[in-house]
Design a protein around this nucleic acid. Structure first.
Lengths: 200, 200
DNA sequence: TGTACATCAGTGAACGCGCGTTCACTGATGTAC
DNA sequence: TGTACATCAGTGAACGCGCGTTCACTGATGTAC
C-alpha cells in the first residue's frame, strides 16, 4: 500500500544506509538487490520505486559512505582542543590504522573496501569515488596544513599509505602480515606526527 | 581429440596466463569461464580437464601474477650495476608509479588490481595473496637493506604507499587526482631515495 | 472540513539472461603386449 | 617395432541456479473539489 512521503523518504534512507554497509562488507557483486532489500526489511520488488537500477544505488551508497567518513575528519563543533582540525585527524588515523577497521569493513573507508572494484562499476561509481576522494584529500590537506610545508602532497601520500595498508591487510587474511603492515604504517614519520601522542 | 602431454601442459599454461591478465584487467567477477577459454583459444567445456573450479583457477592465476611481478624485483643475472638489488628496485618503482601501470592493470600488480576483491574470493585466493605479499615484501626488504635502518618496516610502508596510490588513481577515474596522486607518491622521500636519479 | 478519486510504495510471482558446471561424444595419444 | 585397446583433451549442447528487472495487484495516502 502507499506510504506517506515521510515513510517513503525513510525507506529510501534505510536502503542507502544498508547498501552502504553491505557493499563495503561483501563487495559490490556480493550483494544482490533481494539480499539488500531483505536486510532493509522489505521485499525486492519495491526497490525500483526508489532507484532506476542497482548501479544507481551503488553510486549513491558509495557517496553516502564517503560522506560518513569525511564527517569524521571534520572538527567537532565546540571542540576544546587547541587545534581541533589536527585533533580530528589524530582520532581518524587512530581508528583507521586499527585491527577493528581491518575486520569491520562495513563501517570503514570505501576506498579501502571497494577500491579495486570501482574501476569496473561504471561511470557513476567512478564519479562518486572521485568526488569522495577529493573531499577527503581536502580535509587531510587542511589538517596537515599546520605541520607540513607541502600539505597537499603530504595528504595524498598519507592517504595512499593508509588505504594501501588496509587493502593489503585484508587481502592477505589472518596471519602475521595482517597486523604487521598496520603497525609499520603507524610508525611512518608523517603518521606519528599526525597522531601526536596517541599510539594505543 | 586427445592431445599430447606437451600440448596439454601448454594449454594449461595458456589458460593460467590468460586468466592472470583478464582477472587483473576486469576483476574476478568480470571474467566468465567461457570468456576466458575463448580468449585462450578454446571452448569452455575443456576447462574442467585442467581445473576443478573457477575458484581454483583464480588462486593459481593470482599466484602466477605475483611470480611475474616478484621476478621483476630480482636482480638480473650478470647485471653490471654496482648495486644490482637496488637497481632492480629503482626500475620496479619507476614502472610501478607510472600512468602506464594505472591504465594497464592486466600486466600490473595483483594487489592493486584485485586487492579489495580478494577478501571475498575464498581461502585459496587469500592464501595466494598472503604468499605473494610475503614474497614481495621480502624482496623489497632486501633491496632497502642498504639504505634503511629498518628495512622491513620501510618495505611495508613503501608497499602500502604504492599499492594505495594505484588503487586510488584507478578508482577516481580520469581526472586531476589520477595523475596527482602518483606524482605525490613519487616525491615521497623513501621513494625518491629508492629511485635514485630515475625520475622520468 | 468532508468526499471521491488518482496516485503510488510495497508485495510477491514471473521473466530472461548469463553464469558455473556437467555430460555424451570424438578421435588422436599413450600404453600394454 | 607393430598392433590393439584404453585414455582423455577438447567440443558444444544442456542443466540448474541466481541475478537484475518487470509487472499486476493492494490499499493507504495525497489531492482536487
Amino acid at each position: 500500500m502507499r506510504r506517506s512521503k515521510q515513510a517513503t523518504a525513510e525507506s529510501r534512507r534505510t536502503i542507502v544506509e544498508t547498501a552502504s554497509k553491505l557493499f563495503r562488507a561483501r563487495g559490490l557483486e556480493g550483494v544482490g538487490v533481494a539480499d539488500l532489500m531483505q536486510a532493509a526489511g522489505m521485499t525486492h520488488g519495491g526497490f525500483y520505486r526508489h532507484f532506476p537500477s542497482k548501479a544507481a544505488l551503488v553510486a549513491e551508497a558509495m557517496a553516502h559512505a564517503f560522506s560518513e567518513v569525511a564527517t569524521r575528519l571534520e572538527p567537532r563543533a565546540g571542540d576544546a582542543a587547541p587545534e581541533p582540525v589536527a585533533a580530528a585527524l589524530s582520532v581518524y588515523l587512530n581508528v583507521y590504522l586499527s585491527a577493528g577497521h581491518v575486520s569491520h569493513a562495513e563501517s570503514g573507508c570505501p576506498m579501502a573496501a571497494i577500491g579495486s572494484e570501482a574501476p569496473h562499476a561504471g561511470a557513476e561509481v567512478s564519479a562518486a569515488f572521485a568526488a569522495g576522494a577529493h573531499r577527503i584529500v581536502d580535509r587531510l590537506t587542511e589538517a596537515l596544513g599546520q605541520t607540513s610545508p607541502e600539505p597537499r602532497e603530504a595528504a595524498l601520500r598519507l592517504l595512499s599509505s593508509i588505504v594501501g595498508a588496509i587493502v593489503i591487510s585484508r587481502a592477505v587474511g589472518e596471519g602475521s602480515l595482517q597486523d604487521e603492515i598496520i603497525a609499520a604504517v603507524r610508525t611512518d614519520p608523517i603518521v606519528v606526527r599526525a597522531l601526536g601522542g596517541k599510539t594505543n
